[in-house]
Design a protein around this nucleic acid. Structure first.
Length: 483
RNA sequence: GGCGGUAUCGUCUAGGGGCCUAGGACACAGCCCUCUCAAGGCUGGAACACGGGUUCGAAUCCCGUUACCGCUACCA
């Protein structure tokens, strides 16, 4: 049983950035390829020079790389000269086989006729007038250099296929008009270029958004005209915004790069995207990349368009933040801290153990890398924020007393954070104070913040020397404040 | 307009004739835990679009209606 190796491709047109819908399509193709030990290819559909830009192409690469969706062969640029030549050859082959004809109608004429039909409330369909031209007239006009397109002659019958997600779909050919495959300037129309490229790239499974469903019969007709075997087709549902409408800038972040900047983990993004149009079945939701590859299956593919809910994405990110290996998390945070000027690489290196302890304690209480990066620096270097100080130490004299007592405990007791916290609680009890009245000011002294992990955890992060130093710093500050 | 696609809680979904008085998750509310902030645990409200069939029995199968989406270019 030598099954043909799976070859799939993601074929975006570079007209912006990598959209979450495109990312999802890329992800499904990638998962499918990885699971079947197949090949995942990338093709840039840049035949529309006016709309394509180099930055857009780079944005697509960056987005895919960030998500971890690596492609296996050099990128194919649809507009490359050798591809254009092949598109023209294929159009010519179809023409020579008698399955297409030259059409001399100009775009302006066509538009006028279309408008006229519309004003008569009729639906416009090309009337094949050029297909009825006498052969010698065609030859004469071609010889005269009259511009013309090559138009595919749609045969009688019906065109259908078994879609991996929608099962059987069929279109009566009478509903498909004769369509142009090659423009008068010799460049190919999308449907021809796609089919020609997919054949050349030996694509076995064409998997894309379901907005391509109605292109599919035309493409199948082209495969048949070119005598090429059909690939398997799969059409994934669209992704919408919270209002049920197609995702657009109005919905806020729609590019994967936006989420990268928001502090979303790539594996969380993939996990969340995977659930837009696919389900592993049962209650399974949070998955690593490896699990997704193992679990991915065409039988779990959904038909219904889904709504992109950033709240759930954030939750999902929190789940991944908490479960991923700590040493995989650190580099990203380091980069952010350095980039934001919150810490230097040298500083992080010098305090590496403390840094990792803080990272580990903090990561279950945040939902994004940004939050994590903003909460972390205080464990590296303490800076008082006057507003926070006022709230955490409303009574400087009382705070000074508590801080002094804490300082003595930390400095003289055996280094055992839970035991020290217990001793602090005993202090509260002996003074008939609420536990918070004692731990609050201590927290402020230790972290410069009103919220943090538990006190014993904070002591553990800082270590004895740093804890003592910070309590001393607080005493000095409070002495100055109450004097 | 024509053609095609889709239809389970607000959202992501489980479900593929009896296991469903429809399960899980996000969000929301309450409670518990608790020194703070999270995390976690528990509880609650919340859905099979509508109408016909098929069947002993339909969320599940068929048809129609409605709604939404897509395509309908010498765009991709």
């Amino acid at each position: 049983m030598t099954a043909t190796p799976v070859r799939v491709r993601f074929a975006p047109s570079p007209t912006g950035y990598l959209h979450v819908g495109g990312a999802r399509t890329a992800l499904f193709n990638w998962l499918f390829a990885r699971q079947h030990g197949g090949v995942f290819l990338l093709r840039i559909e840049d035949t529309d020079k006016a709309r394509s830009t180099e930055e857009s192409t780079r944005a697509i690469f960056d987005g895919l790389r960030w998500l971890g969706l690596d492609w296996d062969e050099p990128v194919v640029y649809q507009g490359a000269d050798e591809n254009l030549a092949r598109h023209q050859r294929d159009a010519r082959a179809i023409l020579d086989a008698g399955k297409a004809y030259r059409c001399f109608c100009t775009a302006t004429e066509l538009n006028e006729r279309r408008a006229a039909a519309e004003s008569r409330k009729e639906s416009f369909r090309y009337d094949r007038r050029c297909d009825r031209l006498a052969a010698d007239e065609v030859a004469r006009r071609v010889a005269a250099g009259e511009p013309h397109t090559i138009r595919f002659r749609v045969p009688e019958g019906s065109t259908g296929w078994r879609d991996l997600v929608h099962d059987d779909i069929a279109f009566p050919n009478k509903d498909i008009e004769d369509f142009v495959i090659l423009r008068s300037d010799g460049t190919p129309i999308y449907n021809l270029a796609v089919v020609s490229d997919d054949i050349a790239m030996r694509i076995t499974h064409v998997m894309r958004g379901d907005d391509h469903i109605s292109n599919t019969p035309k493409q199948i007709l082209l495969y048949q005209a070119l005598g090429a075997p059909l690939p398997v087709f799969a059409h994934f549902p669209m992704i919408h915004g919270m209002d049920g409408k197609k995702l657009s800038k109005r919905h806020g972040a729609t590019a994967v790069g936006d989420y990268q900047h928001l502090g979303i983990l790539p594996q969380a993004m993939c996990n969340f995207l995977a659930l837009m149009g696919w389900s592993p079945g049962g209650d399974r939701e949070v998955m690593t990349m490896a699990e997704m590859i193992a679990l991915f299956s065409e039988t779990g593919l959904l038909k219904k368009a889904s709504v992109f809910d950033t709240k759930k994405l954030e939750w999902m990110n929190g789940q991944h933040l908490a479960m991923m290996p700590l040493d995989a998390l650190a580099p990203d945070i380091t980069a952010r801290l350095v980039a934001d000027g919150l810490a230097t690489a040298a500083e992080l290196d010098a305090r590496h153990d403390r840094y990792l302890r803080a990272l580990d304690a903090l990561r279950t209480r945040v939902r994004s890398l940004n939050e994590l990066a903003s909460q972390l620096p205080t464990y590296l270097r303490l800076v008082y924020d006057p507003a926070v100080v006022r709230k955490a130490w409303p009574d400087a004299a009382a705070a000074a007393e508590i801080v002094a007592q804490a300082r003595e405990l930390v400095a003289t007791q055996p280094w055992d954070p839970p035991a020290i916290e217990a001793a602090l609680r005993a202090v509260a009890e002996s003074r008939a104070l609420g536990v918070g009245k004692v731990l609050g000011p201590v927290r402020m002294a230790l972290t410069g913040s009103a919220s943090s992990p538990g006190i014993s955890e904070v002591l553990h992060i800082l270590g004895k020397d740093e804890a003592v130093a910070r309590l001393d710093q607080a005493r000095a500050y409070l002495a100055g404040a109450s004097a």
